[in-house]
Design a protein around this nucleic acid. Structure first.
Length: 271
DNA sequence: CAACGGACCTGCCTGC
DNA sequence: TGCAGGCAGGTCCGTT
């Protein structure tokens, strides 16, 4: 489900409710996520105070004095802050029971997400250590994409969706960014010039920023930490619009599959 | 190394 | 109505 804007929306939503709160206990109803929730985590986390809620790519980091909880929402995960006594629904797998009578609750029907723990610098964790730059960070630019892509034959859509290249760009925003930049999604990454990568980097930054402002994109079931949907869906130019007219030239948008993912583009505007 | 396909899991929608 | 098949916002891992 969530790409960078949805994860950032979640982070901003939970931060004011969990920052400075003590975790009275961690309630794991079903620890069978992508990787098992560490069995010792409830004992380790009990009594710890959440000192920071950060995001790296699509990972959320909750820092305590003892270590850091690493959360990924996978395709279907969401976090909400609720009164601790709220009865759990199906797929509500983990609760962080807080010291103010509320809890942070992870719901993840497909269980592609994870809840992990590290006592070291979380940026050194194997899942985080090799991630590419943040789209809004220092290291990301057209020049960076241009240099890294030399000699690569993979389609540019797969290239920008690779978290080792740049974090946070999932299927929706990859489609949208390529449309904005006028680049055909199947074009080999290594055969795109510097100026077009400047366009693409700018499109990625602008679209992700706009989506964050709108609270993310709700297609089916994404909600923020208070249960509200994101409104960027109304701004989507191509994703989910196959067969409908291009908003620029009116040609019917085309649907294809690339890397087993739905890919929508304008055959007239994107080359 | 880079590229590709499969794997993980559930829910929802379509079509027979 | 039931059921099979395909699809979904992610990404790691094993194989070429």
């Amino acid at each position: 489900m969530p790409e960078l804007p949805e994860v950032e929306t979640t982070r901003r939503g939970i931060e004011p409710h969990v920052l400075g709160r003590r975790v009275e206990r961690l309630l794991v109803r079903d620890g069978r996520l992508r990787w098992p929730v560490p069995p010792e985590l409830p004992a380790t986390l009990a009594g710890q105070t959440i000192d920071a809620v950060e995001r790296r790519g699509k990972y959320l980091l909750m820092r305590t004095a003892a270590g850091t909880v690493i959360v990924h929402l996978g395709m279907s995960g969401s976090l909400r802050v609720l009164p601790a006594e709220t009865p759990p629904a199906r797929h509500d797998h983990v609760d962080w029971v807080l010291d103010d009578g509320r809890c942070l609750r992870l719901r993840d029907p497909r269980r592609f997400g994870c809840v992990l723990w590290t006592e070291d610098d979380p940026m050194r964790h194997p899942l985080l250590a090799d991630l590419g730059p943040e789209p809004h960070g220092e290291g990301f630019s057209g020049g960076y994409l241009f240099e890294l892509s030399r000699g690569r034959t993979v389609g540019v859509k797969g290239f920008i969706m690779n978290s080792h290249v740049v974090v946070g760009v999932g299927n929706i925003y990859a489609n949208e960014s390529l449309f904005r930049a006028g680049i055909h999604p199947a074009r080999a990454a290594g055969r795109i010039g510097r100026e077009r990568y400047d366009e693409l980097a700018g499109a990625i930054r602008d679209i992700l920023a706009a989506a964050i402002l709108q609270g993310g994109t709700t297609l089916r079931d994404f909600t923020d930490s208070e249960g509200k949907p994101g409104y960027f869906r109304h701004e989507l130019q191509v994703y989910g619009r196959a067969g409908e007219p291009c908003t620029v030239c009116g040609a019917p948008l085309r649907l294809s599959r690339q890397d087993q993912r739905a890919t929508v583009y304008c055959p007239n505007c994107q080359h």
